[in-house]
């Protein structure tokens, strides 16, 4: 495999620093990854094409997919009912390949604000939204969000009035969760495609609110 020639001081197309990659010194765990992968292929448990395809499938999953689901629910009351009844099926019906994931959509209303966490590990609706942000997997978020959710939300820049109940959903077992944020009043005349740009990743985790696109 050729070396990357990118400048490590620069940001990637997604605006994040590049992570140590192909041209850094080979470490023990990378050696283990190569060895495990090659052994599984040699012994016929998996194929190299499957690894390639799985990486592509995961790369194709992103918060944009969830944003389309949310925007569709905002635009179509019948779909919203279907989403709240069975979010997995509703997402599949929109054409998203979410694999075997069991998904529940939870609606934010004038009286309830919802937040998702996994205190035991890092469960996340990855088959719709892609891999979780690093902070979602952190000790700080996992520990604090269940005991001081309002303080944590304020650190994310979200203030929830005291007359709005907070519901924290701990993904302890087999279900994964996506928050259906409340549609901002000023977006009522927008098309579904335009609405999707208002739906941020954080608003689908519950630590953010929909925002006007930059």
């Amino acid at each position: 495999m050729p070396h990357d020639n990118h400048d490590h001081g620069a940001l990637s197309p997604s605006g994040h620093p590049y992570r140590k990659d192909d041209d850094n010194e080979l470490n023990y765990w990378q050696i283990m990854e190569i060895a495990v992968r090659e052994l599984l292929i040699e012994k016929g448990h998996i194929t190299a094409a499957q690894v390639h395809n799985q990486i592509n499938a995961m790369d194709a999953r992103s918060p944009a997919n969830g944003a389309k689901v949310v925007a569709h629910a905002w635009s179509d009351p019948e779909f919203k009912s279907a989403l709240l009844a069975d979010a997995g099926q509703a997402s599949r019906d929109m054409g998203f390949d979410i694999g075997p994931m069991h998904l529940i959509a939870i609606e934010n209303t004038e009286s309830v604000h919802n937040i998702v966490v996994c205190t035991l590990c890092s469960c996340y609706p990855r088959n719709l939204l892609g891999l979780p942000p690093d902070w979602y997997k952190s000790r700080a978020y996992r520990s604090r969000i269940v005991i001081e959710p309002r303080k944590v939300l304020s650190e994310f820049g979200v203030e929830i009035p005291q007359d709005v109940q907070i519901r924290v959903h701990d993904s302890t077992a087999d279900m994964r969760y996506i928050i259906l944020p409340a549609q901002p009043a000023q977006t009522m005349s927008l098309s579904e495609d335009e609405l999707a740009y208002w739906v941020t990743r954080d608003s689908m985790i519950g630590v953010g609110l929909p925002q006007a696109p930059k």
Binding site: P149, Q165, R167, V168, H169, D170, T172, D174, M175
Partner: peptide
């Protein structure tokens, strides 16, 4: 899925007693 109040879980340490946590058990 079970819904617990913050008051039930954390007692006097609850940030807002009527907020809730829901978890799969």
């Amino acid at each position: 899925r079970v819904r617990f109040t913050m008051e039930e879980i954390w007692g006097d340490a609850a940030e807002t007693p009527d907020d809730v946590i829901e978890a799969e058990i």
